[in-house]
Amino acid sequence: MPFSESGCFMEPTTKSQGASAPHAGADDPARVTAFEERIARGETIEPKDWMPERYRKQLIRMMSQHAHSEVVGMLPEGNWITRAPCLRRKLSLLAKVQDEAGHGLYIYCGTETLGVERADLVDQLLEGKAKYSSIFNYPTLTWADMGAIGWLVDGAAIVNQTMLAKASYGPYARAMIRICKEENFHKRQGYEILATLAAGTRGQKAMAQDAVNRWWWPSLMMFGPSDKDSPNSAELLRWRVKQKGNDELRQRFVNLSVPQAQAIGLTLPDPDLKMNPETGDWEFGPIDWEEFYQVIGGNGPCNRERIAARRAAHEDGQWVREAAAAYGEKHKTRQVAA
């Protein structure tokens, strides 16, 4: 569902990245040139190919953050499965959150092709050393949030993921293609929930409008800071990990969403929204970047609760993982002995 757009995370501090400074001469300039020529030709980089150390590190960071986002992203929606108001919605929501687990899994597995282990990546997340998409640090307060998240958050993710499906690193691109196929029902489900609420009782309509009012601006922030303020963008564009800048993607998302809101009779909480007849773009008001930096810096509405929940699941599950591993070992040796 969400994504690890370089801009929506703070630049990792050197202490969290360990030895991130490249060794002098570690990347043979001739090989770097050959690599960048491959990229320019539109070739796909695979796990066993030579790659600059920085490319490898950037991908590990971007992919693992994306995977963490999918898994943390299960929590805000998982919060409403037990209260889903009809069986069809209960099944759909459960299936959607299950898909998010699967997406996290695909991307973790893709990251592991770069020579890291998922367990170590998870440790980094739980120790607060890794980032995940800012959007999941907001709480889900009503059933209508399920509609707003599906429509806006998954909608934003689709804009980004469609682009990432052409990323230069093969395992990442392939994971994205699989995810894109599954993602469309998520957005459609959310939009349908909101449309039904907006056409429902007065209480339902108010619930829907309130949810949209709360989720609109954080969804725009998902695309990360403006390109001029985004330190990783240029490099990721040059390496074709990204193909488009943050601002362009954000504008595309706004252009898609405004008519969708109008179609179901809901307003967007931006008094400055205005169609520009020359460009065809829906121009929008200023984003509160102070809020954004607070949230990704760890001071959002429920950053602590999200990590605490993931930590609890991991710790509570340790005896289970150990048991299965122990059984596997016992039976390996039993077979050998026989």
């Binding site: 459960l94 959150v97 899994l105 699941a313 509570d316």
Partner: peptide, 17 residues
Amino acid sequence: SEWCGHGPILEEDIALS
């Protein structure tokens, strides 16, 4: 369904769901 997001490992979260 209460396990969703709280399973002992991602693969088992998917299985329980």
